[in-house]
Amino acid sequence: MKKNIYEVGYRYHPGTVAWILHRLSGLALILYLVLHIWVIHNLDNPIGFNKVMGFLNEPLFKFLELGLWGVIVYHATNGLRIITVDFFTMKGAKFQKQMFWGAVAIGIVIFIAGAVPFVGHLVK
């Protein structure tokens, strides 16, 4: 049988999982982006804007926003890790593994730092 040269294969190690999550989070962010553009486009009048925003200030949406923050932090830290591997590592990305876990640690710290004001608004 002829092998399909485009076939995407998966062998699971941290880098692969990071790649799949990067793709999924990217797709989620595209969906969010177009919704965001659409909603803002249709909110030209103050009353309508505040109505929708009042709705979005409900705890459920604050919670979803926290999820959005998590997806963004993941995509951004992993993206910067990829850029670092692509541009700034000599000798074939020698420190890939260390950088992977470094990015995980930095991502968790940034997520928590950003989550504090969110949770603060939530419990207030």
């Binding site: 505040n50 926003e65 850029i83 603060g120």
Partner: peptide, 30 residues
């Protein structure tokens, strides 16, 4: 993709700081 990615990180930091991290957390027209 890498260049825009770097810009987006910077712009997102500003966006989130202004919209979510400072202020009351409630976003209104005013």
């Amino acid at each position: 993709q890498r260049i825009t990615g770097i810009f987006l990180v910077v712009l997102l930091i500003i966006h989130f700081t202004i919209m979510h991290f400072i202020g009351t957390g409630e976003i209104d027209y005013q």
